[in-house]
Write a protein that binds this DNA or RNA. Structure first.
Lengths: 133, 133
DNA sequence: ATGCCTGCAAAGCTTTTGCAGATGC
DNA sequence: GCATCTGCAAAAGCTTTGCAGGCAT
């Protein structure tokens, strides 16, 4: 139930927030820009402001409900934070986004950070790929 | 000699281009935003327009002279493309940027892309770290 | 009832573009 | 001399913010 997540985040359970969460859950694209979410809202017959979408997505990000990515510069895309951590592969021809996880890479990252005297807090790994020729 | 690189890129050797290349070569920070480069130009007593900085940096990027990164959303940073490929570690407390290279990770990336039917064209890996506590 | 939300419009930032004059070759 | 380049100012694209009214509790 979405409303629980919203409440747990310390936010009031309002219609726009419920709808946005539902869109992120049910949309065929798991990675959506603010504009995408906004359009999906309108198509679903909801009245909403783009500013609200931005505000809510940012709040959801702070609450850990969604993850913000910057695959390409100029705009962010959001993804529901469910399941396990994973990285992304973006096809530069079709825009397709594929998720993957590699324990080996995760492990190396931690080792590298520590060998420089740091703790690894987060990381961003994006592979830009092309269909095999 | 910088002028050779500019010429090889098919660009006219103009003062602004030479100066920008020199700044990227000599500045203490290896990773600079357009605004940083612009300020450095002014401090060096050069007359220049911010638009020119953006245009030149983009041309240099196309020519492979510089690499554009998007460590944080909202703006790009540029780095002279010299030496070998490497990835980056950003300290979220001090902003320090450390370069590193790990053959193991490079290899895994290629394998992962191929196991999904793709060729790896490029990748972006940034570790966000904190001084060891 | 009260304080948090929302929509709208305006503003903010980085980056791009149009244009007339300047410059490199 | 001619094409390319530059600076300025305006515009564009994404995102944030101020404000007055609206809604959840």
């Amino acid at each position: 139930m979405e409303t629980q997540d919203i409440k747990k985040a310390g936010l009031k359970v309002t219609l726009p927030r419920i709808r946005i969460l539902q869109i992120l859950e049910n949309n065929e694209k798991r990675h959506m820009g603010a504009e995408d979410v906004y359009k999906a809202l309108l198509e679903a017959g909801e009245e909403a402001g783009l500013a609200t979408v931005y505000r809510v997505l940012t709040q959801f990000e702070s609450a850990g409900l969604v993850i913000r990515h910057n695959f390409e510069e100029g705009h962010s895309v959001f993804e529901l934070a469910e399941g396990e951590h994973h990285d992304h592969m973006v096809c530069i021809e079709t825009g397709t986004i594929i998720e993957f996880h590699d324990e080996e890479i995760e492990r190396r990252q931690k080792i590298i950070a520590e060998s420089h005297g740091y703790d690894l807090e987060e990381h961003s790994l994006v592979l830009y790929v092309k269909p095999k020729s």
